[in-house]
Amino acid sequence: MSSTIATDSHGLSDSWTIGERVCAALMPLIAVVEVLILTVTGCFSYCPCISIIDQNHKCTYTAKDFAILADETRFTVEEVEALHVLFKRLSSSLIDDDSIHKEELQLALFQTPYGKNLFLDRVFDVFDQKRNGVIEFDEFVHALSVFHPYAPMDEKIDFAFKLYDLRQTGFIEPEEVKLMVVAILIEFDMNLPDDLLEAIVHKTIADADKDNDGKISREDWKAFVSRNPSLLINMTLPYLKDITSVLSSFVFKTEAKP
C-alpha cells in the first residue's frame, strides 16, 4: 500500500510546471525566513513571552510595552523599567529564560530554592494569572501593582482573599484555615495539639463568618478586614512608592529598545 502511494505521488510531480517546482523547493526556506521575521518583529509588538522550562527563550521588551504596562497599572514607565531590572535579576537566578519559576521565587523569599511551602505556592499561583507554571513580566507587574501603597483597598482585600481561598471555591473554609495554621506553625518551627488548633480556627471563623454559613465569603472577608486592618499589612510594599531609587543599586541595565 505504501508503494502505491509513493508511485502516485511521484506521478503527480511529473505534471508540475517549472514555477511550481521552484516554489516547492523554496517553500521550506521561505518558512524559515518567515519564522525569523516574525520572531524579530514579534519583539516590537506587545506579546508577552511564552516561556518554556529549560528552553533559553528570550524576549526583549520595548518602550511601548513598558508604556502599555504603565497604563494598566499604578506604575510610571520609569518604574516599570525599574521593575524589569528586578524581574531580570529574579528570573535569571536559576534558569535564565525571562520568566520566574517557583524555585526562583522561593530563592528570593527564603534564600533557598528547596523545600515545600503552602504559602509560597499560593503567592506563586495568584501571580501566575495565565496558569502556565511561570510568572511572566506582565503578570509580575500587574500583581505588584496591587501591593502599591496607593492601590485601592478593595484590590488588596481581593488579592488576600485569593491567597487564602486555597481551593479557589470563592470561600475560605475551616479546613483551609486549619491547613494554613498548620503550615505557619511548621514555618515557625512550632507545634500545637489539635484541640488548640481547632480553637484558633473556630474562633477565627466565628469572628469572620457574619452570615453564619460556616465559611468565609468575599463579603464576610471584606467586613472582617475592615475590622482587622492589620491583616493587610503585608499587602502594601512601601518600596514600590520609590521603586526607581530602591532598585538603583542593582547593576543590571534595562534592555528596552527606544
Binding site: L109, F110, N117, F119, Y164, V177, M180, V181, A183, I184, E187, F188, I200, V201, K203, T204, D207, A208, F224, N228, S230, L231, I233, N234
Partner: peptide, 10 residues
C-alpha cells in the same frame, strides 16, 4: 486570629 498568624509567613 488565625489570619494574623498566617500573614506573618515569610
Amino acid at each position: 486570629n488565625a489570619f494574623e498568624l498566617i500573614s506573618r509567613s515569610q
